[in-house]
Structure formats: structure tokens, C-alpha cells
Design a protein around this nucleic acid. Structure first.
Lengths: 223, 223
DNA sequence: TCAATAGTGTCTCTTAGACAATATTGA
DNA sequence: TCAATATTGTCTAAGAGACACTATTGA
């Protein structure tokens, strides 16, 4: 461990990217190809490069774009983790970001054939992640749950056009508690009139009454 | 600006310490004695020292203890601020912490005669702070308001023993909206039975019916 | 007794959950 | 027509605000 490393800690950004697939909450993980923790799974992340990164949020954006091929417009800082113990390379700081991916883009990631990238079911994860990433992931997940429970709509997880039932199922998957349809829609009308727009004349069809399609209002942000 | 500084950003911690005085929300500020921003007021803070600091939270504790003489047990991370523009010395990261001081200890700070320390009324601040500390302070204040609005009790701002009216006034000062006494107390009984304890037989006296004294439950944490 | 604030009781209105009823499609 | 799901309406119970009432002290 060099003296430089002691005086100026290693700074990394790590991203917890969530989406919904098959009614299950999924999170994007990467397989580490280098030491430390070679072969372990971790949150996608990378080292801050002050020469190219304007700030930490932009560092997170760059990392996701270069390592996963995704431009994520709405990342939110969750927390920091720091100390000499969490990374064998020395004193380090990690900033964790929370991001949401529209469920219809989940296969875009898989399709890119970026090596060592996989979607893990959040509820069915058993192995520990590299570093303290299990803890970071837990914190990001808690933030996601808190915000949704506090009535912030996770519209960035939905396709551009979606039905209210899709939105309800998404929220139910995140919070883990079923919602009552009528009360849910009443709350949308009363408290989210500015967040949602009907797409006039567009409906999702099936063996049932067609469902009105909606979209997020321009400039809607989960964060 | 050295190359080292470019590869390893300067890391600082800054603390927004709030208390109540005379029915007003106050925040602790320091006068900077060195460049940059010499003479400007800023949030109390300091540079991370990886040699002595176990992690960033402990760095914040060390800074408050050495610079202000206060041991603050319940600090909460608010957010980071980062980039090349916010500090003229180069690429930097600041982690902001939120802390509360019991209102009966406000004069302990002043009494220490630490130079360049003052309590500022949050609502009556006009001048900008050094660096981006005006923004950091605003974020810390918003976090404080959010938590109190979300029904977390700011017991760490009160004396060890306090009346329910004192608690109500404190919350009203933070949120800026008056509360209805009866509903407030009903909510305390129903939702905060585990957070509050009567101090048996102790009362605050005055030209009125004596007021029962309460204390925070052991291990109560605002954060 | 009076002023002042502590503490309690009750009424009403709002809101949220439960659940029923109606609507519209493909097969 | 039937199954399936969308959408709307209504009843009810719980919770929150408004407000009045009682309690207890020092002066």
C-alpha cells in the first residue's frame, strides 16, 4: 500500500440498477474479472477519474455507459461507504447510486453480450457480493422501498406507455404488499394528476376490456 | 494544482448542526481563518485523514470534537458534493452530515470561546457561505424537515427532560407549521409509545398546572 | 379569584380499505 | 354467451383536525 493511497483514498462509484421481470424485482450484477474478489459478483461500478469525470454522478454515468452500455438519466445518490477495511487495496470511499431500468429494456442489456453481466432476482439472492456490496445493495433497496411506500411512482421502471394495472403490479412487487385497485386509482387521480398523462386513443388489448395507456409527464423524475 | 491532487481528490466532511434557540432554528457556522474563502462563513468541517479516521463518519466526529469541542453521537449522512469547480484547490468531494444539539447546550458551545464560531438563525441568513456550503446547508435542512414531517421526533434537540409542549414547539419551529395540541398528543401516545418515557413524579412548574416531564427512551435515535 | 398553560374528551369531516357493480373485449 | 380484466361507484371504519372542556398552579 503506497503512501499516496493513504493520503488520498480510492474513490469508487457503485450502481444498484433495478428493474422488474416476470413479476420479480431484479438487480444488475457483474462478475469481477480482476483481483480483489476475482470471480465474485458485485454491483457494477468503477473508479473515479477526476480527469474525465465532472463529478461523482457523472462518474457513475460513465461507468454504466462504458461497462454496461446503458445511459441512465435518473440516478440518485444513496449513501457513502468508507474506511480502510472494506477494500483490501486500502482506505476507500464508495458512493452508491440507485437507478431504475424500464422493464421492456431488460433484454437490451442481456443482448449486448457484455461479459459477466447478469440480472439477479433480489429476493432469491443467497451468495454474498464482493466488498461490502451486499450491504450497499440492501441500502439501495431500502431507499427504493421507502420512496415507493412514500407514494413516489417508479415510472422509470415501466415502458414508455403502460397501463395502470402494470403500474400497480410494479409497486406491489417493490413493496411486497398488495394494493386495492379502487383506492390505488383514486390516489393516482387525486395526488398524481400532474405526473401521469393519458395517451389519447391508445389501449392495451387482450381477452378483456381494453386498458387505457398512460405515460409519465414530461420531466417526471423518480428522484 | 499537483498531479496527486488530480488523481486523488481532496475529501472533506462538513457538518450542519442544528438547534433551537428562542423559538428559532439555528445552525452552527464557522469563520474561515485560511484561504480559500478566508473570512467567509462556512459549515464546520475538515479534511479527511485516512491515517487517523476509521471512516467518514468518524472523520466528522473528530472534526467536531477538535474544532468545536462537541461530541455528537447521532450524525447522519445527507449527501455528497463533488467536482473540480466547488473548491479552488482542485477536484474535491465533500460529505455533508446532519446533527442535532440539545437546546440547553447551545451556550456550552459559545462558552468554549472557540474563535470564529457562531450560531446563525437559519431563516434570517442572507450572506452566501464559502464553497457550495449554502447548497449543502439547504440540503441538510430539507432532510431535517422531511424527517420531522415524516413523524420522526427530533428528541436530540431537547433537554434530557422535557415537556410535551416543548416537543411540540420544537417540531413546529422545524416544520414551520402549527400543530393541534390534542391531535399531536394522541399521535405521540399511539405511534411513539416506545420512544418516550414519563419521568415519574417530575414536573415543570410555572404559573400554571405543572407539566409532566418526559425523556427519550434509551437508545432512541433520530437517525 | 384570575391568568396561564397542562391535559382530556368529543364531534365532525376526510380519507382509505373493502367490496360490489358495470364495461368491453376476444374467443 | 363466457371468461377475463378494466373501470367506476358506494359503504364503512379508522384517523385527523377543530374545538371545547376540565385541571392545577402562582400570584
Amino acid at each position: 500500500m503506497s503512501k499516496k493511497r493513504l493520503l488520498f483514498p480510492l474513490v469508487t462509484v457503485d450502481i444498484a440498477l433495478f428493474t422488474i421481470d416476470g413479476g420479480e424485482l431484479k438487480v444488475l450484477l457483474t462478475q469481477r474479472s480482476d483481483a480483489p474478489f476475482r470471480g465474485w459478483r458485485s454491483l457494477p461500478g468503477g473508479v473515479l477519474d477526476p480527469v474525465v469525470d465532472v463529478n461523482l454522478l457523472e462518474a457513475a454515468n460513465r461507468v454504466m455507459l462504458t461497462k454496461v452500455g446503458l445511459a441512465l438519466p435518473h440516478m440518485e445518490e444513496v449513501c457513502s461507504a468508507s474506511g480502510a477495511a472494506r477494500d483490501p487495496r486500502g482506505w476507500s470511499i464508495s458512493i452508491t447510486y440507485l437507478a431504475l431500468l424500464p422493464m421492456d429494456q431488460i433484454h437490451v442489456v442481456a443482448g449486448r453480450k457484455v461479459d459477466g453481466i447478469e440480472w439477479a432476482g433480489y429476493g432469491s439472492m443467497t451468495q454474498d457480493l464482493a466488498f461490502d456490496h451486499s450491504l450497499l445493495l440492501k441500502r439501495a433497496h431500502r431507499r427504493l422501498q421507502q420512496k415507493v411506500a412514500a407514494n413516489v411512482l417508479p415510472l422509470h421502471m415501466l415502458p414508455q406507455k403502460f397501463t395502470l394495472t402494470q403500474l400497480q403490479r410494479t409497486i406491489e412487487t417493490i413493496t411486497g404488499t398488495p394494493l386495492e385497485k379502487s383506492a390505488f386509482r383514486r390516489r393516482l387521480k387525486e395526488q398524481h394528476a400532474a405526473d401521469l398523462e393519458e395517451v389519447p386513443g391508445e389501449f392495451e388489448r387482450g381477452v378483456q376490456r381494453p386498458a387505457q395507456l398512460w405515460k409519465a409527464s414530461k420531466d417526471y423524475r423518480f428522484h
